[in-house]
């Protein structure tokens, strides 16, 4: 299951040819450090290979977007970054993923998932109160020593998710009473509560209306100061608006990875160009 590549390799290995061209230069990110790096990652569901040799670097405090048609493997790749695919039966992963230079399979899984938070496609609050939703991660990870600290942490997370003002008077009400957009921001607050270093967003706006979507996009801009953000989206305009880097996936392969402007304005690969210009098909 684990990897063969020595850890030292990651500092040096240069990206696959596709993303060699002026990596990040166009976005002015040359000073950025690498937060996550995947090397030659393969993933199988039973006998079906869903990912083929994905290698990629994800930079700290930047937004990285994955685009591509449905079933291209972008979500699957996202879910390998916090080892959530392991919860699915009959799957196999090989290749390396390093978080701050450490193999994620060497990190205790609940610790890894605390450090790498995730927000899902459909908002999925727990059948608990708003407060308890946000407090859940703090409680299980033993991160709040007393009631006052817990309240403080919950408030802070809700503020970071730009939800505090809307829910501060009804913290003890069911989370299911909130609107779809609010529920999704609650899920973001829930993920933020445990202070993740990386936040994985799996098509977080696909079920939301344009106004709710705009709020989440604003949030992504604000969060990038404190988090590394990886977002899967089927919406190319969204990737263009929020992301510093963009990766294009097709049929389980990473076709191209580069600065977002390069991908959208001047892609190196024909497939990428066809997809971003809407000629894909």
């Amino acid at each position: 299951m684990q990897a063969s590549a020595p850890k030292s390799q990651m500092e040096l290995t240069m990206p696959t040819p596709t993303n060699s061209s002026a990596l990040g230069a166009s976005e002015g990110t040359s000073a950025s450090t690498i937060k996550l790096s995947a090397t030659d990652l393969n993933f199988h569901y039973g006998s079906f290979q869903a990912l083929h040799g994905i290698s990629m670097k994800i930079y700290a405090n930047r937004v990285t977007a994955f685009i591509g048609p449905s079933g291209c493997g972008k979500s699957t790749f996202l879910r390998t970054l916090n080892r959530l695919n392991e919860a699915v039966r009959n799957t196999r992963v090989d290749g390396t993923v390093l978080l701050d230079g450490q193999d994620i399979h060497d990190i205790e899984v609940s610790e890894l998932r605390r450090r790498v938070g995730m927000v899902f496609q459909r908002s999925n609050p727990f059948p608990k109160s708003i407060f308890e939703n946000v407090a859940y991660g703090l409680r299980i990870n033993g991160m709040a020593s007393n009631r006052a600290r817990l309240r403080e942490a919950v408030e802070q997370s809700l503020r970071r998710a730009a939800l505090w003002d809307e829910v501060k008077d009804k913290l003890n009400q069911s989370a299911y009473g909130l609107s779809g957009g609010q529920q999704q921001r609650l899920c973001i607050a829930r993920a933020l509560a445990v202070n993740p270093e990386v936040l994985l967003l799996d098509e977080p706006c696909s079920a939301l209306d344009p106004i709710a979507t705009a709020k989440i996009e604003d949030l992504i801009f604000q969060l990038k100061d404190s988090c590394t953000i990886v977002i899967v989206t089927h919406n190319m305009q969204q990737a263009a608006r929020v992301a510093d880097f963009t990766g294009f996936f097709l049929l389980g392969r990473l076709i191209e990875f580069d600065g977002t402007t390069v991908i959208f304005k001047n892609p190196a690969k024909k497939e990428t160009e066809d997809y971003v210009t809407g000629r894909f098909g």
Binding site: A87, E111, R113, F120, N124, I140, N141, R190
Partner: peptide
């Protein structure tokens, strides 16, 4: 129970039992 409920908890670092 929808799988994303379970996954949301796991993604926060919950153990299988939690």
């Amino acid at each position: 129970v929808p799988a994303d409920q379970r996954e949301a908890a796991l993604a926060l670092g919950a153990t299988r039992w939690e």
